[in-house]
Design a protein around this nucleic acid. Structure first.
Lengths: 224, 224
DNA sequence: GTCTATATTTAGATAGAC
DNA sequence: GTCTATCTAAATATAGAC
């Protein structure tokens, strides 16, 4: 680690504030509806100052995703450090982390169809490095969980990997959240559950408890 | 049914062509990157003529979704007419229909976060009627499948319903399709499979066949 | 490096002739 | 109803003073 001058520290702090603002706005509005003006306003700086840090709107989005990936890598490292956890549960925990981040409004929503955005992200070495690092880690856990019989054998590891990444932008989570009927915790549980055991659940399990949803609905919004 | 004059028929045919073009362009580019100019060019008419049929870009998108819902209702009616099918398989078939439509480039991609688009769609009576009709039909099948023990009891019917609708925009399908490694049919199978039995699969089942992926990869693109 | 003010571009929407 | 040509608004990006 290089020691930073005061000016560099100030610069870095501002840049972090920018990334945080972009992160929140991307989660709220998505890439296309987020304007650079709104980012500048949220940070409290002029728009021209923004362009001294990032040379395009696409670069802003890329930096936000790189930041999120940093968080994912940190969480993955914690999971890897605990030898008592099964690999399938490491995958589950990371999926849960992604869904929680989404439901708390901190997961950028990027349109996969935007070519200029894709190009900017593939050119971002920081983003790409972290993405590959995370993919590698997940890939190892997937292989291991497959060998242990904890994952469906007929699914290629790639399919499982992408399915896990996709949980970060599950539209069902947004819809349920917008309804306001259930607690965030309950929605996260369902999202992770449907990801790993599907809508049909585990046929091996016996009948669910009679009142499975007791205490899962928000107070004051119970349906008649 | 009212009898149409020739002029009305011509008008209707052109309108159908517009909806088809919008449908394809929405699937390819998504709402934000689809321009009205591109729609006019694809149909082969002037942009001003478009606005004689639809008064806004949002209305175009809404008409495209209403058209897709019409197709879903037709498929649902066919399933309902065959008494030999289990309700859980009706749900599966409809999910498969949606994924197939997506993978063949005929499923509009609409951003859920766009407020003006949401407003236009909720104001579109045709779209809303079909949406409710389909939701009702699916809701009945879900209740019935739940009673038969074919769906996980701990999941509220709403959650299952939205999860099925969400299969129409599953990003995993797009990613796998873009990779070019697998056949469309194989990708559809996996998408439906992960939806209903998840990444872990059914623990009750015995070991999968040794070479589960035989014949599922596209020719000439087999990995080393 | 930060700001105000401005340039440029793009795309949604419309006027008016036919 | 359809077309060409145009208007307008919004948003990305930049110039130039401090």
């Amino acid at each position: 680690m290089k020691k930073l001058t005061l000016a560099e520290k100030v610069y870095q702090v501002r840049e972090d504030a920018i990334v945080a603002a972009v992160n929140r706005l991307l989660a709220e509005k998505g890439f296309d509806l987020m304007t650079v003006d709104a980012v500048a306003a949220e940070v409290g700086i002029g728009k021209a100052s923004l362009y001294k840090h990032f040379s395009s709107k696409e670069d802003l989005a890329s930096a936000a995703m790189a930041f999120v990936l940093q968080g994912a890598l940190t969480h993955a490292a914690e999971l890897a450090a605990d030898p008592s956890i099964e690999d399938i549960d490491r995958l589950r925990s990371l999926a849960r982390w992604a869904v929680q981040r989404q439901i708390s409004g901190e997961m950028p929503a990027l349109p996969a169809q935007n070519p200029s955005l894709r190009e900017a992200m593939t050119r971002d070495k920081v983003y790409m490095d972290r993405l590959m690092q995370l993919s590698d880690q997940l890939g190892q856990w997937i292989e291991s969980a497959l060998a242990a019989g904890a994952l469906e054998r007929s699914l290629p590891p790639e399919v499982t990997l992408y399915s896990l990444f996709a949980k970060g932008c599950d539209p069902v989570v947004s819809i349920l959240k917008a309804m306001g009927t259930y607690t965030d915790e309950q929605i996260v549980d369902w999202a992770v559950q449907t990801c790993f055991t599907g809508l049909c659940g585990s046929p091996a399990r016996d009948a669910a408890p009679p009142q499975a949803d007791a205490g899962t609905r928000k107070a004051g919004k119970r349906s008649p």
